[in-house]
Structure formats: structure tokens, C-alpha cells
Computed example of a mutant assay.
Amino acid sequence: MELNFLGTGSGVPSKERNVSAIALKLLQEQNSIWLFDCGEATQHQILHTNIKPRKITKIFITHMHGDHIFGLPGLLSSRSFQGGEELLTIYGPEGIKDYIDTSLAVSGTTLTYPLSIIEFTEGKLFEDAQFTVSCKKLDHGIASYGFRITEKDKPGKLLADKLKAAGIEPGPIYQQIKENDVVRTNDGQIIHRKQFIGSDKKGRVITIMGDTRASHHNRTFVEGSDVLVHEATFGHEKADLAKAYFHSTTKQAATLADESNVEKLVLTHISSRYQQSDDQKLLTEAREIFPKTELAHDFHQVTIHSK
């Protein structure tokens, strides 16, 4: 699993940061990519990466502000010309369907692939054999949401030495045992997997927050995340401004991470008032509270290794 930050600015694009978009690459897990928000020029940002738009199968929209959705119509259209044939599902707040349908209709755009648009409120959005995705409403003036992506636990390592001691030699039978609760060998022996496999491998958790004021109500939602992606529109000195505009500061995001047993914090959605020369100051503010903090820049990558 890998997070690719395609846009890390807020409000309007700048020379140093484009507006919001994050790609979660699940190429090994599902041979697909999930996109979180799609600000203006996201498809241009993708041109600077190895991301193939046809591999994007799900798009999750945190909220309906323009810096998070204005890139959608162009990306949807271009996907038709870039080999996109599989179903693309878009999850978003109320209004996302009207926005997309109207944009495609008035521009005369016809897609070459099936498109599903799902509007949500709160709770579980999606579940398959590998992942569960849930969302939580945040505090941003308009409906804004965070997403928690939970990988399901995987079966532990096969205990080969124990199998050999039981008289079961290596071969295709080992794979059968790992994939099935109960297996009968050629000589009629019944093998129960739970007796020959180690503890489950804990699944990874990524939480991606949309625009939000700081709130202790978000602790349970982000608890135990391997990676928490949180907006830090303002530095600590602008706490009053952050509250007035329904945003968070560096220290507020770090405090949430510190109080929620998070493994790593990645700050994004940085105001254009801050230049590259300010990055170290913003990062230092957060690290004073939560040392395992990174400040994302455009094309920043974070790998989330299996446990």
C-alpha cells in the first residue's frame, strides 16, 4: 500500500502546491488505485507520476468545496481515452451526483465505462474480502467527511516444522491447508488449519481526514491508525483564523495523533500563505507534540508496509 500526494495545498493552487488529491495505490492488493478528492488539475498532476487513470476504480470525495472536486469532470472524461473500461465508483456527500451528471451532460461527455455514484452520510461505505471503508462527519461548516480504510487481518504464517513433525511433507498440500479451514490428505488424514498456522497478521489502517476544525470527537475514529492524513491549513500562530474558517493547525493535528495511538501523521492542505521556506517551521511545530510527523508536498509518497 502506498499513498501518493498529488495535491497538498488548500483553497487555490500555488506554484508550489496544487489543490487536494491523494492516491492510494493498491496494486499488489487489488491491482487498482483509489483516489481521495480530485481538485483542479489532478489529471495534470497524474501525468508526473506512474499512475494510470484506468487503474483508478474508486474515488472518495471528502466534501463539495471546489478545491476538492473541480478536477473530477476532466479526469472522468480523460479516463475514457486512456483505456478505462472497468466500473468506476464515486463516493461523495449529497450533491456529488448532481454535480457530475450536470458537468458531463452540459459538456456533451460520453463515458466508455460504467460509472456508479454513491452519496453517503456516515457509517460503513464499502466492504470486500480485503478492506472496509467507513466515514465520519467532521466540523467544516459544510458536510465534510473523514475516511478510515481498514485492511482485514490475514492468516498467519504456515508452521512448516509442525506440519513435518505431523508427517506432512512439503507440497501443494501446504497451500491447500493455508487456504482452507479443514483439509483431507491423500491418506485420509484430517488437517485443521488453526492447528498449523501462526497468529493472524494484523491489517493496516489508514485514516484520511477531510477539511475540519480540531475536535476531540475524532479520536475514536482515527484511533490506532498506521497513517493519519490530516489537514494543517494554518500554523500554530493562526489558531483563531483556523477556528473561524473551520480548519486545523499543525499543533492541533499533532495533538489528535498523539492522543489517538497513531503510528504516523502526515500533514497536508497547507495554506498558500506559507512558502517552501516555511515548511520546516510548520513541521517543527507538529513534531514538538508528535515526533512521527511528516509534512507532505506534491508527489510525496508514503509506503505502509505489512505488519
Rank of each mutant, 00 (worst) to 15 (best):
W34V: 01
K52A: 08
L104S: 01
P291R: 11
F126W: 10
D161M: 07
P170L: 06
H230P: 01
R273W: 05
V227D: 00
N18S: 15
T293D: 03
V222W: 01
P172R: 14
D161I: 04
K58H: 15
L138G: 05
Q130E: 07
I168W: 06
V205F: 00
K264H: 12
K194D: 12
L295P: 14
Q28M: 09
P291D: 04
I69C: 07
A254Q: 06
I208R: 02
E151C: 00
G141E: 10
D98I: 10
R204V: 12
T185P: 01
D278S: 06
I96T: 11
I117H: 01
A242Y: 09
E259L: 11
I90F: 02
P172F: 09
D181N: 13
K243W: 07
D200T: 06
E127W: 04
T8D: 13
T293R: 02
K154W: 05
N261S: 12
S80K: 09
I46Y: 11
D278V: 08
T255W: 09
G108L: 01
T212S: 15
S103Q: 09
E119F: 11
F290N: 00
N186T: 13
K157Y: 07
R204A: 06
Y274I: 12
T207P: 08
D200G: 04
E263N: 08
K136F: 07
T62F: 08
V106P: 02
I190N: 06
E263I: 04
I100V: 13
L228W: 00
K251F: 03
